[in-house]
Design a protein around this nucleic acid. Structure first.
Lengths: 249, 249
DNA sequence: GGGCAGCGGTCGACAATGTCGAACGGTGGC
DNA sequence: GCCACCGTTCGACATTGTCGACCGCTGCCC
């Protein structure tokens, strides 16, 4: 069996690099980061620019991601069956709970948000779709970790707040609890002052393909002892079951 | 000067194809659409799948866009300076006008929406960012056409509603009017019952780099004679000027 | 003001890769 | 049950992508 096409893999690596950090890199930086000669990197960038996957800043000469990717990303969402079948339930959960709602899937060692409903009364809206959230420090991520044995657990657990779980043993205990209860939560493990609750979305045969849940200020999501509010847990679990049924019809 | 890298161009064409229509295609369809032998198309798809730009449905064997593209699309937005500098003004325009607001740039013969603010009281939110809108039948598109001589005008003008402008001469007269007034509008030219108003966002030297505007039900955007409401025109023009100033600071 | 380092970019020799025709097993429709 | 067409594999080889050497330009430092 022949291997993958080298120049396409290199182009993809280049795009991933441009999606990180400052989002703008010079030719020499890109070449160095990917271990490629400048001539090679330049040839790939010239082609990516021609297909509008990359743009070059006229003044600084630096490269960044191009507009064509936005359309491809949106098209991915439009065709994403999990998302299209979950939309109504997600909106209903937002309306009933009064909290912001997300649907996430596992992608590249993180939670990729494929749908995001704002809190109905928020005016400063930020685009949550496309964001990558940590697996170990969000309720969404804990759900995905709990039910997907293929996900790597030997990745180092980064401390994001004072409450982030960084011990693999402690995380494993939490995941056992998630499997027992059928939902996950976290309070101020990802961001200070913020909490989340999530439950698994299952496809045929019970396979977990995503997570749906709510998040927001910790005093809206949890009681004063930082425990998730039972009414919210119930609403999230119901929404997850409804979405799962929609997926298997 | 050597040409572009063929396999990267082919991969990009494949991704663009998968962004169209049903969003799911078989190998033979993809090969036929791009005029490639099946073996060639398969090699490219295998690599795109490996880098998660493409997924294959297990049951049908068909290919679709992959999750990695969503993250790249979002990263493009995060790094888009026009968008980041416009966010506050767009939100302010939405709050003041009570209408949904979009910011668009020209991309691939259409208007690419890079920011979208929902009407504050809408509950059924659809993701407008990443959508491609027609140039000739939206206020956003007319603004971009009016001020960008490089945009092709010999593309056939598709009729979308009974009111769509399909005559190049009629469109040119409208664009002359847009340049004279400094803003554009349309009522039911793109979608029945919908109207929009937009104004140009200028960078250094007056170069038009995008358009900002409002859209919604025609009776909210226009008077009973289908003319745009002067108060909305004024608000859109003010927001466009404010964004333009933010871009040149 | 001059020199130098490092930038983005170009070009062509050639080694390595990507191409693609032929063949395969599987599936669905008639 | 047969056939057409699917996705997939494989290997010969022609073509392409690689990349070292070199370029002009710019900014910084002495």
């Amino acid at each position: 069996m022949p291997g993958p096409i080298q120049s396409i893999e290199r182009a993809a690596a280049m795009l991933r690099l441009l999606a990180r950090g400052s989002g703008q890199y010079g030719l020499a930086e890109i070449a160095a980061s990917l271990g490629l000669p400048k001539g090679t990197a330049h040839g790939i960038l010239r082609t990516l620019q021609r297909v509008e996957f990359v743009e070059q800043d006229q003044e600084s000469g630096r490269y960044r991601l191009g507009a064509a990717l936005l359309h491809l990303g949106t098209s991915y969402l439009d065709a994403n069956e999990l998302r299209s079948r979950s939309l109504n339930w997600a909106d209903a959960l937002a309306a009933r709970s009064g909290q912001e709602v997300r649907i996430g899937v596992h992608h590249d060692g993180a939670v990729l948000v494929v749908h995001h409903v704002f809190r109905p009364d928020d005016t400063m809206q930020t685009l949550g779709v496309g964001a990558m959230l940590p697996l170990h420090a969000t309720a969404f991520g804990k759900v995905l970790l709990a039910y997907d044995a293929s996900l790597s657990r030997d990745r180092e657990l980064t401390s994001l707040t004072r409450r982030t779980i960084v011990s693999p043993q402690a995380l494993e205990r939490v995941l056992t609890q998630v499997r027992a209860s059928g939902w996950a939560s976290e309070a101020e493990e990802c961001m200070p002052g913020e909490a989340s609750i999530a439950a698994p979305i299952r496809a045929f045969g019970g396979l977990v393909v995503g997570a749906i849940g709510v998040s927001g200020a910790v005093d809206r999501i949890c009681d004063p002892a930082s425990r998730p509010k039972p009414s919210l847990v119930s609403q999230v679990a119901s929404a997850a079951e409804a979405v799962s049924r929609a997926l298997t019809d």
